[in-house]
């Protein structure tokens, strides 16, 4: 297949991601600069971290003053879903050779969805197609971030209340993952451990304690239902 047509194929496949990533990237760039970061910081983040949830989480770190050790544990857990994406891509990425490190770096929720669901590519152009899809997706994200960051820099006064978009993003992700497992048990456990923790523990210990106790409870419950 010709190089041109592989590019056209990648552009067509990534069109829905373009519609999603540009506005979301704009929102991220805008919130980052409104939170007091320089415009290039937002762009560097979108280039080298390239994970919406983690990037908003980083903005939240300075806003909430989360201790670094807690932040690292949370970031690992927040990113855990990427590991499970990788499990489904092991065979797809075998034989991609030079491109493999970038393909692995660029696995986002949306790119994962594209690579696993829509494609039955010609083996001879497979690697090029995967790379183009991944690159285009990241390009949309970085371009959106740049536009939003410049907009946010141009708006002189910070818009009061915009920090709530961080909470809203976590709510969106939480609702999505709750719908996937069709169970309110994790929500209930999270709420219970947070409320009890806030009554009993110093505020800095609530999150680590909730993670430890909550994970333990959920694993025990899962085991119980497995045997039933």
């Amino acid at each position: 297949m010709e190089k041109r047509s592989v590019f056209r194929q990648a552009a067509r496949h990534t069109l829905p991601v373009l519609m999603g990533y540009v506005p979301l990237g704009i929102a991220f760039g805008f919130v980052a600069t409104q939170a007091g970061h320089p415009w290039w910081y937002a762009v560097v983040m979108s280039t080298f971290v390239y994970s919406g949830a983690t990037q908003f989480f980083i903005l939240g770190l300075s806003a909430t003053g989360m201790p670094m050790a807690t932040a690292i544990v949370m970031a690992c857990l927040l990113n855990l879903r990427h590991s499970f994406y990788g499990l489904s891509l092991l065979s797809k990425f075998s034989g991609t050779r030079w491109a493999k490190p970038y393909l692995i770096f660029a696995v986002t929720d949306e790119t994962f969805a594209l690579l696993t669901t829509t494609l039955e590519p010609d083996p001879s152009t497979r690697t090029r197609l995967y790379v183009l899809i991944s690159l285009l997706d990241q390009l949309y994200w970085v371009a959106g971030t740049l536009v939003g960051a410049l907009l946010g820099t141009a708006v002189p006064v910070a818009i009061a209340g915009i920090e709530f978009s961080l909470t809203a993003l976590f709510v969106v992700l939480a609702v999505g993952s709750t719908e996937r497992i069709r169970s309110l048990v994790p929500l209930t456990v999270a709420l219970a451990t947070t409320v009890i923790g806030r009554l009993l523990l110093p505020s800095s210990a609530v999150l680590p304690a909730s993670i430890a106790v909550g994970t333990g409870m959920l694993l025990l419950l899962a085991r119980h239902t497995d045997h039933a």
Partner: peptide, 16 residues
């Protein structure tokens, strides 16, 4: 894989 993501995300909601 199934139980951790919603727990962590709801905890982040409450933390924020």
């Amino acid at each position: 894989e199934t139980v951790l993501p919603p727990l962590v995300l709801w905890l982040l909601v409450f933390y924020s």
